[in-house]
Design a protein around this nucleic acid. Structure first.
Length: 576
RNA sequence: CGGGGCGUAGCGCAGGGGUAGCGCACUUGCUUGGGGUGCAAGAGGUCGCAGGUUCAAAUCCUGUCGCCCCGACCA
């Protein structure tokens, strides 16, 4: 493309509302235009990249036998009511009504739609397994969209859905899809890790799920990795252990005064206790169906509750910390609660890390007092239960191996849905015995527009973007510094040579000064920059190639230009 | 939804009852040529919107809409 005729504008200043590098750079480099909060227009440069990402996705999915479809973006309420998600999705789902007052929504995801397709078209086990996918617009009315394309409201996602006769078949396909995902992100040249994830309410028992995470400091997910074993998990899931805990010999239970000392830290500091010899008590509200329960959760003084683990362990629909008025109703005093009295409607659970036969400091359930010498197995009022509930943290180990924590951006998710949708929507197929059975489903997502933003988040420097070659909008930024018509003719000739050789080139024929041109080239960050400088060319016949990623510069003769460039692009992963 | 902040040219900002401003970007001409060259001349605004106060409102008051941050929330 010739920039003199192109639709491209760069900016020296960063718009106020862009906070993180990828968002700032996408605005400054003229990749996206904000239409409204969480809504973006993809401008030509960004759209070229998106199409390259989509192409890689399509190639790898087609390779494992998936079929591309396109489902309607607007879907009727009836389908969602069948699975109960018309209510469950909440305000995140954008609902609309047509002229006949029929209820519709802008799809945030498409399990219902695809299950409807499956149940009406698949009748026999002979048609299975099958996997349909689409790359389509989704809308989720996020409470707080932010970070540009990383958390927009409208976004593009590849969503795939597979259907299987049994668990073995689902497992086998899951592995294939997992492999395809690895291939996809590798080809894109991105630094990713696959982590075990939490299935949440969508998981059938024991269902597998993995997240594909791009490692980046601004990631909203925390990942626990074990370099020694290669294990990796989302922190929501990771069952790590503490080290260096010392049990304390059981002693007599004694109440002591702790005026205005409401946290474990305060109590430990004021009385010289080790923080790991104190227990913190959290009261959580747990909702299961129509019923509400309260639990007192006991953790080591410096541990935190992992609400996802807790929610799963409780088989709850919802959990949240109890509010002040609820504590009051239970007769508990915030800051001085402990499992030292029996409370109607309140159960006690311990984190596994708590040594049930060791002695701890706990709240006394008396204002301004705690107790020491508390031994959980001996002194807890009511049933004693131990579960893994704590949030993993730096310094933990897994099976004796040290962990490393990282931040990640979730760009892909593979998930075994089991029969959740096929069952509630009445999809059945006949098996080899002629018996109607409920098939199993898997679902697999890749946020394509999020991947674009995350790729920039992962690949940039202070001057601009550093595109991975496989998804760069163009391969080469070709700039010319020329006064004479002869040199301009040489430039035109080189441009045509690039086009003929299949090199995607952004030809900067705007005639601006070298400074501005270099700044724009660095900001845009195409893999290679080629510069034809009149003086150098006249003197030596050489043309300069600069690799954006490494800063490497080489000068070649005109006739060696294409070959050298292709070699460079190859090594940068352009044809991965 | 709670707390905080901001809405003045495409972007970044100043101004603060009486002629609408600066820098970048944009247009034209000359100039310059290896890290945003310089000079000159231009174009671009119902100061978010609606009421109110006033001889006069971008400015003061009320309401409203939008945006950003923190939190809550989030199969």
């Amino acid at each position: 493309m010739r920039l003199s005729q192109g639709f491209w504008q760069t900016y020296k200043e960063t718009p106020n509302d862009a906070e993180i590098p990828s968002h700032q750079l996408m605005m400054r480099a003229g990749l996206i235009h904000k239409t409204a909060g969480g809504l973006y227009t993809y401008l030509p440069m960004a759209f070229r990249s998106i199409k390259k990402i989509e192409k890689i996705v399509r190639e790898e999915l087609d390779r494992i036998g998936c079929y591309e479809v396109q489902m309607s973006v607007i879907t009727p309420a009836e389908l969602w009511k069948e699975t109960g998600r018309w209510e469950a999705m909440g305000p995140q789902m954008l609902r609309i009504k047509d002229r006949a007052e029929r209820e519709l929504c802008v799809s945030p995801t498409n399990e219902e739609t695809v299950t409807d397709v499956f149940r009406k078209t698949i009748n026999s086990y002979k048609q299975l397994p099958v996997c349909l996918y689409q790359i389509n617009t989704k809308f989720r009315d996020e409470i707080r969209p932010r970070f540009g394309l990383l958390r927009g409201r409208e976004f593009t996602m590849k969503d795939a859905y597979s259907l299987h006769i049994d668990k073995d078949c689902l497992n086998a396909f899951y592995e294939k899809m997992y492999g395809a995902y690895v291939a996809i992100f590798k080809r894109m040249g991105l630094d990713f890790i696959v982590v075990e994830a939490d299935g949440g309410a969508m998981a059938a028992g024991g269902a597998k799920t993995h997240e594909f995470q791009l490692v980046a400091d601004i990631g909203e997910d925390t990942l626990v990795t074990v370099p020694a074993t290669g294990y990796a998990a989302n922190i929501e899931k990771a069952p790590t252990q503490r080290t260096g805990l010392k049990p304390q010999v059981a002693s007599e239970l004694t109440r002591f005064s702790t005026p205005n000392q409401k946290t474990c830290e305060e109590v430990a500091a004021a009385h010289g206790f080790d923080i790991t010899h104190t227990l913190k008590a959290l009261v959580m509200q747990v909702i299961r169906g129509e019923k509400t329960h309260y639990y007192m959760v006991m953790l080591l003084g410096d541990d935190q509750l992992n609400e996802v683990k807790f929610k799963n362990a409780m088989a709850a629909d919802h959990v949240r910390p109890a509010q002040a008025h609820e504590l009051e109703k239970l007769g508990l005093i915030k800051g001085f609660m402990g499992p030292t009295v029996e409370v109607q409607g309140l159960s006690v659970v311990y984190d596994l890390t708590v040594d049930m036969n060791s002695s701890y400091v706990v709240g006394a359930n008396v204002a301004e007092h705690h107790m020491k010498g508390f031994v959980p197995s001996r002194d807890t009022k009511g049933n004693v239960k131990s579960l893994d509930l704590r949030l993993a943290k730096e310094g933990d180990v897994m099976n004796g191996q040290p962990i490393v924590m990282k931040k990640g951006i979730e760009v892909g998710h593979v998930f075994q849905l089991g029969d959740k949708y096929t069952k509630s929507m009445g999809a059945t197929v006949l098996n080899a015995q002629g018996k109607a059975i409920t098939p199993l489903m898997g679902c697999y997502g890749i946020g394509t527009t999020r991947t674009l933003a995350a790729a920039i988040e992962q690949n940039h420097d202070q001057d601009g973007i550093i595109w991975p070659a496989a998804i760069a909008p163009y391969d080469v930024y070709f700039g010319v510094i020329a006064k004479t018509d002869e040199t301009k003719k040489v430039a035109e000739d080189i441009y045509q040579t690039f086009l003929a050789a299949g090199i995607e080139v952004l030809y900067d024929d705007r005639g601006m000064g070298p400074g501005g041109m270099f700044k724009d080239a660095d900001l845009m960050g195409l893999p290679c920059r080629v510069v034809l400088g009149e003086r150098d060319f006249a003197a030596t016949g050489e043309i300069e190639i600069k690799v954006r990623k490494t800063g490497e510069t080489l000068k070649v003769q005109k006739n060696a230009l294409v070959a050298t460039l292709k070699e460079k692009l190859q090594s940068l992963g352009k044809w991965a």
